[in-house]
Every structure is written in C-alpha cells, then in structure tokens.
Design a binder for these strands. Structure first.
Lengths: 342, 342
DNA sequence: ACGGTTTACTTAAACGCTTAACCTTATGAC
DNA sequence: GTCATAAGGTTAAGCGTTTAAGTAAACCGT
C-alpha cells in the first residue's frame, strides 16, 4: 500500500504543506475556515495517514511509551505469567490507546541497556514496574522524560510513583485474621528487602500483632521467593511442624495458593485447620479452591492511574510531576479461606 | 540528555557521515579496516545511540512489530488476564528483543483502525492473536508486511499461521477420559464458530467418541462463553441434573476450573464423582485444587515460534512465507482431576 | 493617504539517517 | 605508458514532517 504524504494532500487541497500541517495539528488560529475544510476533505479522500517516524524526527515526540516489567533470571522472559503484571498492563494499555499513544512492552536485561531503547525510540515517557539495580534508575534520570514507577518506594523528584499503602495492607490482612480469633499467625513472603513493598507488608504484620498484644515470633516468618512453589513448601512445613499456627498471611495470592496446596498435602484443610489470606486479589484468587480471602488492590485501576499520571505529565511538559506518590485504595475481600475461631 | 548524532561521530572519527553509516550497518565491504576501527572507537567514546525514527524514515523499516490481542467488549481492555495470551507474549517478546526488535502491544477496536497504526508506525510485521471480523484481515492484506496469525484457521497466502492441531487435542483429551473408563462425557466450551479452534476441538471430541463406539449426545455439550463463570454454571448444571455424566472435557483451563467449582458447589467432588480435563495448560492449571489434568500446548514456545517465523519472513524480504501452517506439538499432562473408573 | 497590525498563507530549513552517484587514487594487465 | 578496474571515500539528495521566518493582502485608526 503506497504511502500518501502530506505533499499529496497539499496538492489536492491546493495549499502548501505547511497549511496542511497546521490544519492537521489543530493550529486553527493560523488558517481560515475555508482552508481547514479543503484540507480535511482532501485528507479524508486520499485516506491520509501521517507517518509518526517523520513526526517524531521533526518534533522529537514519538507518542510511544516504554513499559518495563521484570523478567525471569534464567530464561529472560517477561514475568507476565504473573497476573499482577498482566492486569497492570491491561489498565495501562487501555488508557494509552485512548489518548493516541502506543506502548512498547519489554523486559530489561539486569537493569542494563534500557537507556538505549529510550533513546533509540525517542520515548515520550515510561512506566516501570518492579525493582532494579540502582544504575538502571540513574540511567533513567539522565534521559529527560516523565517516568512513573509502580511497586517501588523510590521517592525522587525524577519519578512519580503510583503505589498502595503496603504497610496498611499487611496490617489489614493480619488484623482480619486476628479479628477472627487467630493468635498464631505465620507470614509467608518473598525476600524482605529494605524499602521494598514486601518489607512494608511485613511491618504491617508486626504492627497488627503488636496492637493486638500478640507476641512477634521470628520463627513464624517464612521468607523466600515470591512463587507458588515456595508457598507450597512453606505450607507443608507449617502444617507438618507448626501445630500452633492456625493462620497464615501470604504476601501474594500465588504464594497463598501454594500454601493451601502444601497444607492439604499434609492432610490438613483450609480453612478448617489453617486459615489463609493472600494479597493483590489477582483474577485467579476467586477461582481458587476454596476462593481466596485476600487484600484487594484494584490492579487494573492502578495501571490506568499510572498511565493517566504519565500522560498528564507529558502534556504539562513544563511542570514537574507532583513528587508525593499517588496512593491507591485497598479493600479486604473476605472469601472462604479464613475461619472464625471458637 | 543531549542526543549524539552520526555527524558528531563522523567528525570525531575524521570521516564522512556516510562512512560512519556504512560501518555501523556492517557494510564492511565499503570501508577499510582502519576506518572501521576509528569509527567504532568514536561511536563508543561518544556513546552514540542511533535514532530509530530517522532510520525508519530513511529506509522504511522501524524494527517495530505489532502484537494484537483481543479485548473485552465492554471496557475495551486487553484480554491479558487470560494467561494464554500472557504466555504467548512472554515467548514473543523474548525472541523479538534478542533480535533488536520491539513490540507494540495493543488491542483493536472491533477490528477497525489497526491499519492506521501499522501505517503510522511503519511496522515491520505483526502477530495477530484471536479472531476478528473479515474487514480487519482485508486491511491487513493491503499493507505489505509479513503477518503471522495465532489461533486462527485462516489460510491465506498473505498470512502464516502458527497453530496446533486442535482437533487432535480434543481427541486426545476425550480419549484420555475414555481410556479411564468414562463413557458419558460432557463438553463444556465457548461458542462453536465455523472454522474456529473451538470447533476443531469439538470435532476431536466427536471423533474420540465415535472411534470408541460411544454415542454422541448433543445434550452433553454445554456451549457458551470461554469464561470461568460459564464453566461454573455448566459444572453446577452437570452435577445437579446429569447424574449420568462422569467426566467433562472443558475447552480451556479456566472453564475447567469453573466446572470444578460448580461441581463442588453441588456437593460432588472432583475427581471422585466427576472427572475434569482442560485444555492449554496455563501456568495456573498446576495450581488448581486438585491440580488439573489438561492438554498441554507449550504456549511460550508457540509464542517464540511465531516470533521466529515473523523475523525470518522479515529477513527474507523477497520470498513469501511458507503457506502451510506451522503446527506445534501437544501433550497430555495427567494430574489429579481424572479418576480411573471401576 | 499613510504607517502599523492582523490575517492567511508560503518558503525553506531542519530533524538524523541512508544510499545512489560521484570522485580519487592505487593496482594490475597488457 | 595506457587503460580498465577496484578500493575507499565523499557529496548530496531524499525519507515525511514541523515550524520559524518571510510575504502579501486586507483592515484600521488618525
């Protein structure tokens, strides 16, 4: 299919290419109503479609947003199997497309090389999910474009973060267990890193215990990787060797599902013997058996919000993004994996 | 961050921009070893990053691949919550990135308007998942780029399809149930459309029954949408009103999970009272309770294969893609949802 | 009637890269 | 020594836009 250029539109309309450009970009103050009309008709009839590469070259804006998600260490594949990221992307994409932007979705090799991508592609902005090594963020700061971070506690004037109150989330989860009469509550979690989301949830766990006058027992935190598999291991361990534990708070829904399976493997049941609460409310949470009680963060809305923030930052080129993070609401959704004790 | 242009590299290296371009694009026949060396050092020291927009404009190739997945009717959001698509994308992305390509992920408004995107962005190729209205494919044919289709039985010289043998898959699933002694087997499925993947699986279902000398009972096919929710409805129905049915083949894993829940809701158990087999082997299949027996199509590999096909088609600009589809292998993975009868 | 604005366009340079065409100089065949 | 060829470079046009600067006509206040 042959490309129709602005030149051909201009000839058909009997005006200069500049006039066409003005009309097409809505600089209506520069042109008469008559010309607008002629140009629009010509463009319509020729089925003119602008070339974004040329546009990008001329005015240094590509209408392209970089979206980065973590990947597996080994096979360098996106962690998109994690519905948390999938759902975020659903939200992001729908907002971007509505505004005429497109998304370049990619992973990034151990934090290196993304600078290349952003420069090559002239990205207008980026949304970064997950946590990377420092040098990655340093690179990001160098290129002058708005950036929003998801799942990060890096507060820097270069970045805007769209987050949740993880500490509160952890607190809500554990408090729910406490309200249901549980006093020996295990924590099953990924690696607790300083200033990571997981640490905040952990802090919430401790605060809930403390406020309820319960003893924090380090032996009751099972910390490893954020996977179904580790949840399974932890679940088995808990069911087999910790008869005192009656409830577990898993810091992700997948882990919670793993815990449930591990518990069952040891001949115990959820929630009869052990109650379980997860975190995130991914779409599969409601499909688990039994349906999982969890802390819902409306993931899709969060993605949409991130996109909105980014877009508005791109629009108000001049002003910086508000440096305070945007905090999205949480809600406890009680399904069938928590039993009321006594 | 200021952009370093080819001009600056050429000045630093003391050669013309043309020479730099030749070196950087590997046209080594045109330049001496000495120049190559000088240019490479200059580029390195200046940390030169080419501008793909300019490149795209000059040689009409963007190194950008369009990836399209279906979206929900109502909210116009990607169906990325369906792990089937997520996993495909994992595979696609990893291959593309390795070859220096990037992916523009988007949905498409009821089949319209994607032509615009492809023209605007000068896409080098596209991977289309799902099924759309005819006009969409007509548009696609007009733009002259390689296209690979996933999950489609449209055989046209313009497209290459990377598929599986859905009929065989359906056959394998049902045959597995029959081998386990089941004779009253329900089918729970999305809408059966002529030449859709679902129809093929349905055909496989019928063939397996026939070959085993079993009667095909239309009352045993439960056809509606490909969702967990419908699986749930169907499961309840089956458990409550079809005591003769001992096994169900669901044409997607999500539906299978829904069936299991529905069955349980009616006080029956999987696999004790009713056996269930799914299709796809999404990552959550192994996390269900009990772990789901299903027909595995290595989804990630399929995504990778699709990307490979596309890339090689882009490379051999001239030659057309082989018009026979690429068929990926299937495997039955027996987990815990099918009971041996008697 | 005159300078000064305003309005509605057009011209042409610029964005960063590729590449066909051209220009030297060296190499070799006879 | 002459001519063809090859090797290694350079020049400059072109890709499709945008936009600053220029132009020409119309309008206006005095």
């Amino acid at each position: 299919m042959k490309r129709i250029t602005i030149r051909e539109v201009s000839e058909k309309a009997g005006v200069s290419t500049a006039a066409v450009s003005y009309v097409l970009n809505g600089r209506h103050s520069k042109v008469s109503a008559d010309t607008i009309e002629k140009v629009q008709r010509a463009a319509q009839e020729l089925n003119y479609i602008p070339d974004f590469s040329a546009r990008s070259l001329a005015n240094n804006s590509s209408k392209l947003i970089g979206v980065v998600i973590p990947q597996t260490e080994d096979r360098k594949q996106l962690l998109l199997q994690n519905p948390f990221y999938s759902e975020l992307i659903c939200g992001i994409e729908s907002q971007l497309r509505q505004s005429g932007y497109h998304m370049i979705l990619s992973g990034v090799e151990k934090g290196e090389g993304y600078l290349d991508t952003t420069m090559q592609r002239n990205l207008d902005g980026a949304i970064i999910m997950g946590v990377y090594q420092e040098s990655f963020y340093d690179d990001l700061k160098k290129v002058n474009m708005p950036i929003v971070l998801i799942d990060s506690y890096i507060y820097d004037r270069h970045f805007h973060v769209v987050g949740i109150d993880d500490e509160l989330g952890g607190y809500m989860a554990v408090n729910h267990l406490i309200e249901n009469g549980h006093t020996n509550i295990a924590l099953v979690t990924g690696t607790i890193r300083k200033d990571g989301v997981v640490e905040k949830r952990f802090l919430g766990y401790k605060r809930a215990l403390k406020e309820a006058g319960l003893f924090y027992n380090p032996d009751h935190v099972f910390e490893h990787s954020v996977t179904y598999e580790y949840g399974y291991e932890a679940g088995k361990l808990i069911a087999a060797e910790h008869p005192e534990i009656t409830a577990v708070f898993a810091t992700s829904d997948q882990m919670a599902m793993g815990v449930m399976r591990g518990v069952r493997e040891e001949g115990k049941d959820v929630p009869e013997h052990i109650s379980v609460i997860g975190f995130d409310d991914i779409s599969f949470a409601r499909m688990s058996t039994p349906p999982l009680t969890t802390v819902d963060q409306d993931i899709i809305s969060r993605g949409m919000k991130a996109a909105d923030c980014l877009l508005s930052a791109i629009q108000n080129k001049g002003k910086e993004l508000p440096s305070e993070p945007t905090i999205m609401p949480l809600a406890l959704v009680a399904r069938d994996t928590v039993r009321k004790l006594q």
